[in-house]
């Protein structure tokens, strides 16, 4: 490629960059225009009461549905302290029954029965969205970090026994999560969140008769719960 061609290509690229990238070609405005006004939705010093429907996402052989309730006190607009309680119902998936009936394979089941936890919520993102109808929807996005307890029922086959046995187990579990609230009015919002409850499982202690010989002493299990609900701000 000759120098002339090379130069032409460079000029073309610079030209495209200059006109394609906004801000490079446009005249620089010497001042800024801002909207500064009282916040539409103020959470500070308000208590949020919520109810959700939750489902555990990462269970292969069961469906677990939970009814959840939460109370959050917002210390500031970005920080809140909350307590959550949930109670669940577990239903077997068809796959589990097929494996047992046709292939005589009994799978281990970790069924979440209840959750109780407290968490710290941090809301770094506050925004708004315009629907096609022109209506505005305000929303915020938060992350949560907490600690609580989970009650699970472990169904495992004992050594030398064909029928599985239920082992109730409660354990401490840290939880991390994220969610969003969409404000319907100055008092109510729709919300959804996803949370990961981390369970530290000691098989030999919880279900000694069912523990494998080479099973590690501790293992981590993640219970990923997604929730959709409504909350009311007092």
């Amino acid at each position: 490629m000759g120098n002339k061609t090379y130069c032409r290509i460079v000029v073309l690229c610079v030209g495209v960059l200059f006109f394609a990238v906004p801000g490079l070609s446009a005249p620089r405005q010497e001042y800024q225009i801002n909207v500064i006004r009282p916040k539409f939705f103020v959470k500070k010093s308000r208590t949020e009461v919520g109810a959700d429907l939750a489902a555990v996402l990462n269970q292969t052989f069961t469906y677990t549905y939970l009814l959840s309730g939460a109370i959050v006190y917002h210390l500031t607009d970005s920080l809140g302290l909350g307590v959550t309680g949930a109670y669940g119902l577990t239903v077997n998936k068809e796959d589990r029954d097929v494996l047992k009936d046709r292939f005589s394979i009994t799978v281990d089941i970790f069924a979440t029965e209840w959750i109780a936890e407290s968490s710290l919520l941090w809301t770094p993102v506050y925004g708004k969205y315009q629907l096609a109808s022109g209506r505005l929807v305000y929303f915020d996005t938060y992350v949560s970090l907490g600690f609580g307890m989970m009650g699970i029922s472990i169904r495992k086959k004992e050594r030398g026994n064909d029928d599985p046995v239920d082992y109730p187990y409660s354990c401490y579990s840290p939880v991390i999560g994220a969610g969003q609230r969409f404000y319907l009015s100055k008092k109510t919002s729709l919300r959804w969140q996803i949370r990961d409850h981390i369970i530290l499982y000691n098989g030999k202690r919880c279900a000694p008769a069912a523990a494998e010989e080479n099973e590690p002493e501790f293992s981590y299990y993640h219970t990923i719960v997604t929730q959709v609900g409504i909350s009311y701000f007092m």
Binding site: Y31, Q32, I33, N34, V35, R37, Y126, G134
Partner: peptide
Amino acid sequence: KSDLEFWPFENEYWEDELGGYVYDIV
């Protein structure tokens, strides 16, 4: 005690922002 929100104007008029503009010009 004001709890304020701040939106930069980026050549887009939003209906809820009308009446809330303040210039930052020297």
